[in-house]
Design a binder for these strands. Structure first.
Lengths: 198, 198
DNA sequence: AACACTTTATGACTTAAATCATAAAACAAG
DNA sequence: CTTGTTTTATGATTTAAGTCATAAAGTGTT
């Protein structure tokens, strides 16, 4: 999103996180701008009985956690490294300075927030009114456009586990498994040794 | 959000909409920036069998529909005047010009998108993992902070119908009615001749 | 190779919310 | 005031997805 050169010019530092390390926690106040260099980060909530909801998954060059930073509000979710990951951290004050001095970056930020808002609008409507097959398919099709799914001879490989799909759509694993089987039977996607292709 | 003077300087025009008039429709490409002068606007989706999901409700000085404008994507929902409303319309090209020439407005836009993303994140988690009482209460408490609920001697008057609460939380009217009764019994809110107070 | 852990899979059952039906209040318009 | 529409309300019933139990296949580690 923001070029590494620019970030370093404003004293951003690179930090490494191990698998399942917490990057920030729900309820805390934001102190930094975060941008993935490598690896995979998820933002998620846990309800009272431990059930997870994944707000989004972020890959290289993507930033996350800006809304509360701009609003001086507590984080509404946790950020966790799904794999070993390297992240740029830029302090809030330096980030704000960067924005003021580089108006074109504001436009980039706007586009990025707009993109995420668009995704959330679509998924909110799906999750509230649509049946499991519709929800799962919408997520997969969005993922093809915006997550880093790779295409091979079988189609796009949906490299999410059934559990992740459930946590992103508000469905339980068993329901996702059954839904994906039903979608395969209908011919809208393929399962080739347990992996899902579209 | 953007001052009327600045909007008019860039040739924004005021347009009136009657109750239930469509402002823009799902699937269409954006052409304008919209900002409410007076009245009430809802953005919502209808699923295949006509069930509605309300993405958000907007009041005076609030803008809506920007994400697809920035992304050149089709609107993911409809915008409808809930009451008689007056709206500023600013063409996309003039809006972009306004942004370029007034960098401080970008920051305002960012804050506004951040706010909406924050709301969607909270509600998405609620809708996917929480039970009706939790969902309804969260919506109400958010509304007190961000919709224009008025405080009187009984507390904040939640001026949404049960149906609207249902369409905002993904619940059916009957469930909302029963949930609100249960919440009253627990003493977390009041019902005074059918109106809800918190 | 053996062991532990994760992921996918399936069947049986339970349950919370949706659906259906019906009606009384409240409100709005002529 | 009357009539039509919207909103709130309640009880009975249905159902789709969640829950529970159990297991096989796959993956990773020492």
């Amino acid at each position: 999103m923001i070029s590494p050169e620019l970030l370093e010019k404003y004293s951003a530092v690179m930090k490494s996180f191990g698998k399942n390390d917490i990057i920030f926690e729900e309820g805390n106040l934001p102190t930094h701008y975060y941008q993935v260099i490598s690896g995979e980060v998820k933002m998620s909530n846990y309800n009272d009985d431990g059930r997870e909801f994944i707000q989004g998954i972020f890959y290289k060059e993507q930033s996350f956690g800006e809304p509360p930073l701009f609003l001086n509000q507590k984080y509404p979710a946790n950020a966790i490294a799904v794999d070993e990951s390297e992240i740029f951290l830029l302090s809030k004050s330096n980030f704000m300075k960067l924005l003021e001095e580089n108006p074109k970056v504001s436009i980039k930020i706007i586009e990025n927030l707009a993109q995420r808002l668009y995704y959330k609008s679509v998924m909110a409507a799906e999750m509230s009114t649509q049946e499991p097959e519709h929800r799962v398919l919408k997520l997969i099709d969005h993922g093809i456009a915006y997550f880093n799914f790779k295409k091979d001879s079988n189609g796009y490989l949906i490299n999410f586990t059934r559990q992740q799909i459930g946590d992103l759509t508000g469905l339980r694993v068993e329901t996702v498994i059954r839904t994906i089987k039903a979608l395969e039977k209908k011919g809208v996607l393929k399962i080739i040794n347990r992996k899902v292709y579209r």
